[in-house]
Amino acid sequence: MSGEVWVYSESEAVASEVATAADDVAKGASAHVRMVDISSLRPTTRGSGARLLLKGPPSPEVSPAVAAEALARAARELAPLAILLGATRDGREAASRLAAKLGVGCMAEVAGLASDGQGMTGERDVFAGKVVAKVRCRFPAVATVKVGAYPRAVAQPADAQEKDVGPIPDQTKTLGREKKQAGSVDLRSAKVIVSAGRGVKKKEDLAILAELATAMRGALGCSRPLSSDLGWLPEEHHIGLTGVTVKPDLYLAVGISGQLQHVAGMKDSKIVASINTDKDAPIFQASDYGIVGDLYQVVPALRRALAARR
């Protein structure tokens, strides 16, 4: 059976990753990949295969709901085997809407895609990445591809086909955009977090930890008392049960005792290291590495060591 595997993402970079995944699906199903774009101002140039430009929806903003409707209208007519989207925020929403509109299966956040002509299989992380589930979906199908799981496809000149799907009113309206306050952090995406606890004596002393965080290309977090009770840092820095849950590659807890409510928010970090004067502090039980010592000596020493390595 021959058909098409469509690729769509609102982000061009993600679309080129999804295109690589689509190649794997197309191979097994002897299908062709087609890059889909919707009333775009930034035509997709990346990715292998042909292009399809869907005209009709209002430009330039294509909301997930509009994208799903446009794709659904085109798919009903052109009957692709599969439609792959990027597992971005918008992509997830568009995919679930699209699958529901078409009444077909949807695989969420998959990687390792393959196909046997009848359907496709993929792998998805479940239980916070502790288990990999193998999932299968019969064609026609929709899937979102895990971001970062595939290399970007090389750009190729492509033949573009246009299709008018008719006007699609957008139910949502953007009322305005506000910039986040300066100094705001996104701890959830930080690879390294240096986290400060009540072991820090004065607000001014946070500066040495902020410097350390910068030197390690990381972000500064804290235990709850520092933000909620002392107000030294904004609320969004506070990690734990009632704050942010983080999973960085390296979590450095400085002067944090490691109460359960804090640990609940960082226990899934890849590596946890801690600095504490109290050798019995519970944080050491949650740590891979621990330094029993005064943060006012250890942190400057770490800074010097880092500087020496550059």
Partner: peptide, 20 residues
Amino acid sequence: DREKSAMLANLAQSQNPYGF
């Protein structure tokens, strides 16, 4: 919000609200 849904997800996956 994130805290409430995390608690419910923990109950589903770990059968305790902490996720341990």
